[in-house]
Amino acid sequence: MRIRIAHETVYRYDTPATKAIQILRLMPRNHDGQYVVRWRVEVSEDCRVEPREDAFGNLTHTFTVDGPISELAVRVAGEVETQDTHGIVRGTREKFPPSFYLRQTDLTMPNAAITDWAGEIGDGGKRPALETLHALQQAIYANFKFDVNATVPSTTAQQAFANKHGVCQDYAHIFCSAARHLKIPARYVGGYFLRGDGIVDMESGHAWTEAFLPDLGWIAFDPANGICATEAHVRIATGLDYLAAAPVRGTRYGGQGEAMAVKVTVDQASRQSQQ
């Protein structure tokens, strides 16, 4: 399937900012089941954009802009050819052994509520791992309410778990938290998702997870949709949690009254544009 993506983030300031720095993780890589046909990352202001690879093998773009900045836009546009791999993720750039992904972070650190819940799903270690992961995914999908207003980027797995609602990011954190507690390496994935219901405009990208089983390798679970990743998923960045895979991490100096507008369009590319 060929998926076309446009992702625009615009910052506006009532009083102009004097300086800004951002690190973008908005660049997909090729792997089995994902081929990047074309991809562009553009910054509206004049600046040098430094391409780099981060600790997890994600492609980053770093830039600094000198003010006065009253508006700053980051625009991403591209097309990716995908194939269904039944959730199996192969051919990715791996920089650490799977055991590294057992590490919890401030965002995924479980509390007793999460460990009890995970322990129950894993049946005290008696349930086979793959089955446990599917059950985890379904448990989150079935019992948590999707709510864009419920959380912020710094919401932890513990908070989201207690609230029983959140966004895909929170689902992914809860999944990682529980899986790692059960000694199954798990990681956060940020990317885009082509919806099945025909809606193409959205307010943000998507997030899901990957878990590692020795005989299968990395498998992608999407607790927000209750399915393993399909050809509708475009994988951009991975890491231990949202922070490590965040599409934008940045700081501005000065400037008051920031307003941020995000527009994401994920659509199936038409035959003509496939040329």
Binding site: D54, K95, F96, L102, R103
Partner: peptide
Amino acid sequence: IFGNPVFRPEMNG
């Protein structure tokens, strides 16, 4: 190394 919370993946390589 990898199980240590102060292992900094950013320093890898």
